[in-house]
Design a protein around this nucleic acid. Sequence first.
DNA 1: TTGTAGGCGTTATCAC
DNA 2: GTGATAACGCCTACAA
Lengths: 343, 343
Amino acid sequence: MKLGQVTIKDIAKALNISSSTVSRALKDYPGISEETKSRVKALAKEMNYRPNAVALSLRKSKSHTIGVIIPEVVHFFFSTVISGIEEVAYANGYNVILCQTNEKVEREISSVDTIISNQIDGLLVSYSKETTDFSHFQKLIDYDYPVVFFDRAPELGDVVNVTVNDFSGAYQAVQHLISQGYREILHLAGPKNLLISKNRKEGYQAALKDAGLEIREDRIIECPLGTPEESEEICLKLFSDPNERPDAVFSSNDIAALGALKAIKSLGLEVPKDVGVVGFSNWQFASMIDPPLSTVSQPGFQMGEKAAQLLLEMIDQKEAKPTQGKEVVLETELIVRGSSQRK
Amino acid sequence: MKLGQVTIKDIAKALNISSSTVSRALKDYPGISEETKSRVKALAKEMNYRPNAVALSLRKSKSHTIGVIIPEVVHFFFSTVISGIEEVAYANGYNVILCQTNEKVEREISSVDTIISNQIDGLLVSYSKETTDFSHFQKLIDYDYPVVFFDRAPELGDVVNVTVNDFSGAYQAVQHLISQGYREILHLAGPKNLLISKNRKEGYQAALKDAGLEIREDRIIECPLGTPEESEEICLKLFSDPNERPDAVFSSNDIAALGALKAIKSLGLEVPKDVGVVGFSNWQFASMIDPPLSTVSQPGFQMGEKAAQLLLEMIDQKEAKPTQGKEVVLETELIVRGSSQRK
DNA sequence: TTGTAGGCGTTATCAC
DNA sequence: GTGATAACGCCTACAA
């Protein structure tokens, strides 16, 4: 005997009734005598009956499964998002099928094929860095197939997406530094070609401007690599001249902030007394280093939850009125820790 | 018109032939004229035909999908494993369905149900901390359903599993501490019901024994939670008495090691001068804290790959001779950093 | 070389 | 109240 092989037919045969009666009894359909109902249910339980989800999918063209296309699982932020997706899916009786693209368009395209073939009910996407042509997604959207983009949102019309407010996250971080009395704030910026870098830089500039502080171009340094070594080197130079020294660092990511912290400490400066530091992303290590790093937390879990919720809504409403062109922007949270708390 | 709705029937109708002919033509079955074959293929391409994987699953009772049951996605090690699994699955045309248990048995059990209902071809499992009763897995194994355990392997007979050599990893770590001159080595152990905890503890004990050092039961403290706070508190107590103080810590995981580090530093002791610390897992933060944490690195990606390969083999051989009782043990790598390098 | 007729497990529709 | 039948999309004996 094999696993999960008990079917409605088996129950029907054993009870000498038709399979339709069994089906109805199990589903509490009206018009079935209480007696039959309870006999069927009892036997089903005894035989350890499990409905065959595949047959159901075929019958109803609905698989109760959602797909997730993601660049890399091994990425703290993304795995947090997956976790949020998983929670919502589980709570609603949906399964999650995972497709990792490793930042390759080619795999993205083949994943979309898989999604279609398997009658997956909807799709959550964070597209790859390589992706510039979105036709494989556009095709889905054109057919009103439920798709929600998260984190990386394409510039397509009528697309549902969930992103983070990088501008305001940066703004708050810098505002906080100013409130702590820091005035000469250095910005370690991310790669120029990423939209998030641009938004964070603009948030930084806006906060300075609104506080009536000068915006100096030589206080914005790009860190293309984002390694601690890179920013450590940069900061060693910048902080060694006592006259022209910044008194704070706002970094576009925690890793670069870490390098800055090292450099500052090695120059004999105290954090947060002499120099304040704030990072971005709230990596796990942020709370663990000395001093604990203040940072802007991106709500990855929440992003996953929200994206999944939206998707499930779209799936439910599919026939009715498709949710379209909806953009959800999640707010970041400034987490103040020892590296910037002066008072 | 809806998505992926083109079926074999549609093609058959358009070409005025029977659907079985279409089916055979698409699969290059013998006994189909070249002409029909090419006409069918051309139209299939033009109509963007995609075989319905659900119908195939039902027909063949094979879904080309494997399930992964994992405690937490947001865990550097586990996400690395998933990544390895994904790679192998993708390379072999399999999909991956993900079930996160959040360390709850209850969710584990319901995940197994999902797996069965959905005709998933095989299962990769790392069970939850709560799991002490394995009957939900045993049931599967009894029916020759392909299951491979990874990282956390149950003590059941005839089970296929892929683990890390926790014993030797721990042994090497402690041996290293001893070689650095540490003598009074504290062990922060993991949850008792996990085999990995047991093996690491035994590795610790063996290393002490082989070096002719005393094994003291009061130098082995269980940290069931594994949070930094928990181990910090424990270490604050243990290291405050100068006479009875350990001079090193071997922790069953990096997080607990971190708490130990905090406690030690806050007591004014220097690492690695006064106290040496070695963790386990090589979390990302390990290299970033001060001092950088020595640790035992686990080959997560490789573990995922190996586990997936074994599972696919079992699926293929299912009818023939089931792979059974196979144990693959991967070696760890000791990474020596500042927290234990005294010389 | 092609068509016909089941059947995978389930449920909706009709009939009795 | 219950049963027979068809259908979801595909494959595969068996017929022709």
